[in-house]
Simulated scan of single mutants.
Amino acid sequence: MNIFNLTFPLTVDFSGGKYWINGEGPYLCGEASTAFLAGEIRCESTVDTSQLMQELETVLKIFGSHLSPYSEEQETTDDVYQQLKQSAAACSVNYAFLPLQGSIVLAERYTFPTLRDFLYVELGRAILHGNAPRQCRLCGGWFLHKQGDRAIYCERTAPGQTEKTCREMGARMVFEKKLQDEDTWKLYKRAYKKYYARCMKGNMSEDEFKAWGEQAAADRDAAIEQLKAAADAALSASIIQQLKENLNRL
């Protein structure tokens, strides 16, 4: 038995933010619902996958909005709240002791009659523990957003790439956009290349280059904040000129 090929009735032991399926695991809460939304779980022909996906996304929009699984929060109507209120999962609950790494853990043992009931509870517990399915901003595929994770791109191979992942390509795109759109980043990149070359040629010590780098990053970030509050083009130009002088002071 594994998370991608489930048969029902299904016995699942939950403990904290993890769970075991018929003794196998642990899985993180949110793994199964993410896999289902990604189309990776084999479903019986009787399961209306599109309706179930829609219901899980509704749960995310209402209860997981604070985890930012979506690019924009959407308004929730009273009708939707009532719909969820009437769609509680069917399951039986008991307790069980699990032998884990030399110790005994008390777990809540659920028995689910259908895939829908299992995913409804699994997703809810995921949200309670700070996890949630999220759609990649590059390929659109679903991946598991873990508590504290700020990633908006998945780790699958990016579209049109053979090795680079969406996360690698996404980070590069963000960086390139900063270089293209912000004069502060352009100036910083030019200055960094100049002083890095000096360091490689031995005309600047590693400690001097490190100290310059720390100050340069601080000057860059300060200029970015000043530009946000700049009231006119003349002031913006003055800030950029001052940054240029600061970055090339050595």
Rank of each mutant, 00 (worst) to 15 (best):
M1R: 09
I3G: 13
L6R: 08
T7C: 07
P9V: 10
V12G: 10
F14T: 07
F14D: 05
W20H: 12
N22G: 13
E24W: 02
E24Y: 07
G25W: 05
L28F: 12
C29Q: 00
E31R: 05
A32I: 01
F36Q: 04
S45C: 01
T46N: 13
T49V: 15
Q51I: 02
L52F: 07
E55L: 13
L56E: 03
L60N: 05
I62P: 01
I62W: 05
S68H: 11
P69F: 00
E75I: 07
T76V: 15
D79P: 00
Q82E: 11
Q83Y: 14
K85Q: 11
S87H: 11
C91K: 04
C91W: 05
Y95G: 13
L100T: 06
L100Y: 09
V105M: 10
V105T: 10
A107G: 14
A107I: 01
Y110K: 03
Y110A: 01
T111V: 14
F112S: 05
F112R: 01
T114M: 04
F118L: 01
L119T: 02
Y120F: 15
V121D: 00
L123I: 01
G124N: 14
L128E: 06
H129S: 12
G130F: 06
N131E: 00
P133H: 07
Q147A: 15
G148D: 02
G148Q: 04
I152W: 03
Y153C: 14
C154H: 08
E163T: 13
T165W: 05
E168H: 10
A171I: 04
A171D: 09
R172P: 09
M173E: 05
K177L: 14
W185K: 00
K186C: 07
L187D: 00
L187K: 08
Y188Q: 04
K189Q: 14
K189H: 15
K189R: 14
K189M: 13
R190N: 12
A191M: 02
A191N: 03
K194P: 03
C199Y: 01
K201A: 14
K201D: 12
K201F: 11
M204H: 09
M204C: 13
S205P: 04
K210R: 14
G213Q: 05
Q215I: 06
Q215E: 10
A216Q: 03
A216N: 07
A217I: 06
A217D: 08
D219R: 03
D221V: 06
A229T: 13
A230I: 02
A234M: 09
A234C: 06
S238H: 08
I239V: 12
I240Y: 05
I240H: 06
L243F: 10
K244F: 10
K244Q: 12
E245H: 08
N246T: 07
N246Y: 02
